[in-house]
Amino acid sequence: MSTTGYDATGVTLKATAYGVVAFLVLANLVPFLFILSVSFMPPSEFFTDPHLVPYEPTLEAWTSGFEELRGNLVNSFLIGAGTALLALAITIPGAYAFARKEFYGKTAGFYAIISAMMFPYILLVIPIMDLWTALGVYNTIFGMILAYQVFVTPFSIWILRDFFENLPTDIEEAAQVYGCTQFTAFVRVILPLAAPGIVAVGFLAFLTGWNDFLFANLLTTGTGPVPAVPVLYGTIGGGSGERVYWGKLMAETLIIGTPPTIIYLVARNYLESAFSV
């Protein structure tokens, strides 16, 4: 008690900090509470006075929403998983080389790759639509997986390079002394040690494939493997006055939004260490 007057600025600072945190946590969670609530409401309830707890909760929105999205969710999953696997296959060797080898053109090559992160991807969509049609991968899952590599490879190289770089320098040589070849040393020593980075990159790549709207919408048509996200687009009707079944729509947003969130919660320790610039 006697310390209250002792460090007034410190106390104010703490109070402000807790206030900011509380406000932001509420600002992030309360909207989702409302969405959760409306997804259990029958259609008649949306148009009454606003209330948080549904009067007559129903699962109807969830079941019909899930029914509608099932095929698309499978597509999203395949695209996400494929994006992650292909990204790891092409970036692990590259990142390893940038981290552990000295060679002519190293810095320039690294920045040529990293700066691709800053490229406004929307500029690529149009030529890629054209190119993919010519190559026959337009409107296929493989075409989507391929296209997402543009987003994914730059940050994969960046994250993985840092992981490989931070491993002890003479570890491969030590392994070679014990009879490993350069390749087995890489597979049995380096790869397991870099596992956190590899997991982080895999998850981020999966999220990219799952969350994207732009390529998903432009590289598929209604007859093809449409992933889940573009299904939401246009449902509101851009103010056309058409009646929207908000309950179902909100259930669908949660159905699509939950897998990335779960993945994030599972992988967050890896991801946070990957983000330390």
Partner: peptide
């Protein structure tokens, strides 16, 4: 974790919400 919720979901989902 609470902060990151809005960022992990697809932006279109958040826009729809």
């Amino acid at each position: 974790a609470a902060f990151l919720l809005s960022y992990t979901m697809p932006p279109l989902v958040i826009g729809t919400i």
